[in-house]
Design a protein around this nucleic acid. Structure first.
Length: 211
DNA sequence: AACAACCTCAACCGCATCAGA
DNA sequence: GTCTGATGCGGTTGAGGTTGT
C-alpha cells in the first residue's frame, strides 16, 4: 500500500494517547500537524541535537526520543516518501543479504529513505517474496498469521547472519569485506552496479579501519 | 452489507553504546 | 574508572485500511 503522504490521513490519526504507566505522562501516539510545525521550528533554530531540550523548547509534551524519531522518519528535509522503486528494492535485497538486519546501514545507502521505512518495507513486502521463493523451492508450509510469519522470516535471517559471522570468526568487518562472490551473483550485473558495490565495500572497509 | 482476516506503517519499547562530568 | 544522561538501533505493537468470504 505504498502511497504518497497525505495530510488527510495524518489528521485522521490524531488521537491523543496517554500512557498510564509512564511517570511523566508524555503525549503519545500520532503527531499532530501543529506538533510537527513546533518541532520543525525549534530544530531550525537550535539544530537536531539535545532532543530533551528540543522537546521542552518546542513546548511539546513529548519525550526527546519521540521527537527524534518524528524528525528522523518524517520531518527531516529530503525525505523521500511513497513508492520504493524497483532499483531501490533490488538494492535493499542486495544490501540485506550483505549486511543482515542492519536497517540504518541499509538506509544510509538509499538517499531519502529511513531505516524504519526500509524495515517496514522488508517485513511487509520482501519477506513475502522470500517466502514465495521458499515455497517454490519445495518447502511447504501451512497458512498462518502474518505476524508470526514475519517474525520467523526475521529470525531465519538473523540466524543466517549469525552463522556467517561465526564462520568468519565472529568478526563483522571481515564479513563485510569477504569476497563479493560469496554474496552476489554478478552474472547479469551491469558494470555500473559492480563499480558501485566495490565503492560501497571500500568505503565501509576504510571506515572500519578508521575506527 | 457485515464480518473476519490480513496488510501497512507510524510510533513505541528496551537495550546497547557513546560522551561528558 | 565509573556514573549518568543522551543518542541510536532493531524489534514489536496496534490503529486504520483493504480484501476476501
Amino acid at each position: 500500500m505504498a502511497e504518497e503522504y497525505s495530510m488527510e490521513k495524518e489528521v485522521k490519526l490524531m488521537v491523543p494517547i496517554t500512557n498510564k504507566s509512564s511517570k511523566k505522562e508524555f503525549n503519545r501516539g500520532a503527531w499532530t500537524a501543529e506538533e510537527d510545525r513546533k518541532l520543525a521550528d525549534v530544530i531550525q533554530i537550535h539544530g537536531a541535537k539535545r532532543w530533551k531540550t528540543i522537546a521542552a523548547k518546542a513546548g511539546l509534551n513529548r519525550c526527546g526520543k519521540s521527537c527524534r524519531l518524528r524528525w528522523m522518519n518524517y520531518l527531516r528535509p529530503n525525505i523521500k516518501r511513497g513508492n520504493i522503486s524497483d532499483q531501490e528494492e533490488d538494492l535493499i535485497l542486495r544490501l540485506h543479504k550483505l549486511l543482515g538486519n542492519r536497517w540504518s546501514l541499509i538506509a544510509g545507502r538509499l538517499p531519502g529513505r529511513t531505516d524504519n521505512e526500509i524495515k517496514n518495507y522488508w517485513n511487509s513486502h520482501l519477506s513475502k517474496k522470500i517466502n514465495q521463493k521458499e515455497k517454490q523451492s519445495g518447502s511447504s508450509s501451512t497458512r498462518e498469521g502474518s505476524k508470526s510469519k514475519k517474525r520467523r522470516v526475521t529470525e531465519k535471517v538473523n540466524e543466517e547472519v549469525k552463522e556467517e559471522e561465526t564462520s568468519n570468526g565472529g568478526h563483522e568487518d571481515s564479513k563485510i569485506s569477504t569476497d563479493l562472490d560469496d554474496f552476489f551473483d554478478f552474472s547479469n550485473e551491469s558494470p555500473l552496479t559492480l563499480e558501485w558495490v566495490r565503492k560501497f565495500l571500500e568505503m565501509d572497509k576504510s571506515l572500519c579501519e578508521f575506527h
